[in-house]
């Protein structure tokens, strides 16, 4: 009898936080649903000079694409090095720890670093390029850690079999370990993108302005972004929140769809890779 009571108590303790989360989530959802009707979708393609969001959306996408193009290859190659080539375990552990710390650095600090180093020291100014590099810094730890994990999940026996057939180390890795780790690696890249998609602080001083005349014509020009626009309108210009709701919603949808595509991609890749199920 007392065992049953204990079980009920535990159930309540575990269930209540869950219930709270559900309530908050459904409140956000209802807010979104009521808001969607009042958003003027035609503004998506109208220039900001006419009160639209076009440059902000494209600017956000530019920032994400560029940062991914930098952080993706660098992060994946670094992970391959750390897992497959790094000479000593001790060194790898120190680097891993440093990467963990990098992941925990607040984005405003990274933004400040980006400003002093990329904008001032490297003389890139407030530009797309400076934003790319700063965002890439934020993505790197996520991509490296995620890819490392994915590479370590692949049974060593695949690589061993390839090596025993006379494959070079790179051939063995690229033809057995990498394809098997691909789903996890891709997921880590998308998680990296999702991490910075809504980022404001990192691009605050490094690459954004409130308004531009059209899209940036070169990577050394500043850019508009949804998150920055929200921040400035509310904090500096004191715009009422409901006026920028459309911008917030579009940003929310971009971030959510990125996370969702990461999940879908992982599900897709996991099919036909039974050893992932075994683990």
């Amino acid at each position: 009898m007392s065992g049953q009571t204990g079980e009920r108590v535990i159930f309540a303790i575990l269930g209540v936080p869950m219930l709270i989360c559900m309530l908050i989530f459904s409140w956000i959802l209802s807010l979104l649903l009521t808001g969607i009707g009042s958003v003027r979708w035609e503004l998506l393609t109208v220039s900001a000079l006419q009160g639209g969001m076009f440059e902000m959306i494209v600017g956000t996408i530019y920032l994400l694409l560029g940062a991914t193009a930098i952080a993706g290859p660098v992060g994946i190659l670094a992970a391959i090095y750390l897992v497959e080539y790094a000479p000593s375990r001790g060194l790898t552990r120190i680097i891993d720890q440093a990467i963990n710390n990098l992941a925990g650095v607040p984005s405003i600090v990274i933004g400040l670093f980006g400003y002093t180093f990329f904008c001032r020291h490297l003389r890139l100014g407030v530009s797309l390029t400076a934003g790319w590099l700063t965002l890439a810094l934020m993505m790197l730890p996520i991509i490296i850690r995620g890819s490392e994990e994915a590479l370590r999940m692949v049974p060593a026996s695949f690589k061993e079999a390839a090596l025993a057939l006379g494959a070079t180390r790179w051939k063995a890795i690229s033809s057995t370990t990498l394809p098997a780790a691909a789903p996890g690696v891709v997921t880590s890249v998308i998680l990296g993108i999702a991490r910075v998609a809504g980022e404001t602080a990192a691009i605050l001083f490094t690459s954004c302005v409130l308004i531009t005349r059209g899209l940036p014509r070169s990577p050394l020009e500043p850019v508009m972004a949804l998150s920055y626009n929200l921040f400035v309108k509310i904090v500096a210009l004191g715009t009422p929140a409901q006026k920028v709701f459309g911008v917030a919603l579009v940003l929310f949808m971009i971030v959510t769809s990125l996370s969702l595509s990461a999940i879908l991609l992982r599900i897709h890749y996991r099919k036909g890779q039974p050893w992932l199920m075994i683990r």
Partner: peptide
């Protein structure tokens, strides 16, 4: 090898 290790 000891354990069959075909490629996936």
């Amino acid at each position: 090898f000891q354990k069959p290790n075909p490629f996936p």
